[in-house]
């Protein structure tokens, strides 16, 4: 058997630079006002830690994109008025900040915060990320045809989608979608090494496509691991290091959402959030307590309570490293 040359023992190349930074640094470097931001999320790899940090750094005028249940991240960022436009496939009834911002009698509308949402489907957004990842100008689908998703557009107008006749012999008319290429994509995963190799487990949702579509990628992880760990577990490497710009260690970074093999949802926390965010004042108070006031990630986790976190931990994969 050929054993890999241990990297740590070999002299590192001159250009090697660790990609490990704090969540704060990653956001200040890669998420600028006016940027488009994709949240990988559809399979529960939501980087809530980055969403909190975007609020802390008071980013404005962001464009949000996601396929699947990125809704909790969007709801946080709409509550903080960081996002003005979203191209998504799903929000949730319990996302009161989003609802206030787009419903007829929503107070946000009346108070001059402008937020617009363009509806796609899960497949449509995934395909749009895939088109950007492959660098092709559009991508066809048999989905959406004849629906109001096809017919009605908000801010994207003609750029939302189009119809096209196949140039090949079946000649059928299909919906074609434009690529979605975010400035930065964000994901929370299990492990990564300093080179940016990301090891992730569980269903993939649209996460891989969202990350590969973006110009920059920020990945928060439960634990930063040595390069040897990745070499041993390469079957689970989700993204090669050269495609990742920043790695941030953020334990429980998806809390109050779950991470496959690590921890389940914190349902009590989610319920309290939904209850509080029914009004803007309620959300502002919630954000002050849970996002703005905690001095660090540790501080936040202490507030949530170590016992409570232990209670939702499943531990099967966390034992790997």
């Amino acid at each position: 058997m050929i054993s890999p040359r241990p990297r740590e023992a070999a002299k590192r190349s001159e250009i090697f630079r660790s990609k490990v930074v704090s969540v704060g640094e990653a956001v200040s470097t890669f998420v600028k006002n006016g940027n488009s931001v994709a949240f990988a999320s559809s399979a529960g790899r939501m980087s809530i830690a980055v969403a909190y940090e975007i609020i802390r750094q008071r980013r404005k005028n962001l464009m949000f994109a996601s396929a699947g249940t990125g809704a909790p991240c969007l709801d946080l960022l709409v509550g903080a008025r960081a996002v003005t436009r979203a191209e998504v496939s799903f929000t949730m009834v319990s996302c009161y900040n989003i609802r206030r911002a787009i419903e007829l009698n929503g107070e946000a509308r009346q108070k001059g915060y402008s937020f617009q949402l363009e509806d796609y489907s899960n497949l449509a957004m995934t395909l749009r990320f895939a088109a950007a990842a492959m660098d092709i100008p559009f991508i066809p689908t048999r989905s959406l045809r004849g629906s109001d998703i096809e017919r009605l557009r908000t801010f994207k107008g003609k750029e939302k989608l189009a119809l096209m006749k196949s140039p090949f012999k079946d000649r059928s008319t299909v919906v074609v979608l434009p690529p979605c290429r975010p400035d930065v994509a964000v994901m929370h995963a299990h492990f990564a090494d300093a080179e940016g190799n990301v090891v992730a487990y569980g269903p993939a949702g649209s996460d891989g496509w969202a990350l590969k579509a973006a110009n920059h990628r920020v990945v928060t992880v439960e634990k930063v691991v040595p390069n040897e760990f990745v070499r041993k577990n390469k079957d689970a490497t989700f993204l090669p290091g050269f495609m990742v710009d920043a790695v941030c260690e953020a334990p429980y970074g998806a809390h109050p959402y779950g991470l496959f093999g690590f921890y389940d949802l914190d349902e009590q926390f989610q319920r309290e959030y939904a209850l509080q965010s029914k009004t803007q004042e309620g959300f502002d108070a919630w954000a002050r307590k849970w996002v703005l006031d905690p001095k660090s990630r540790d501080d936040y986790l202490e507030m949530v309570g170590r016992d409570r976190l232990k209670g939702i931990s499943t531990g099967r994969l966390s034992a790997l490293a």
Binding site: T69, R99, N122, A124
Partner: peptide
Amino acid sequence: PKVRISGSGGAND
């Protein structure tokens, strides 16, 4: 909208 519910998710697909 009077009420925003959830949107398609994968339902349309």
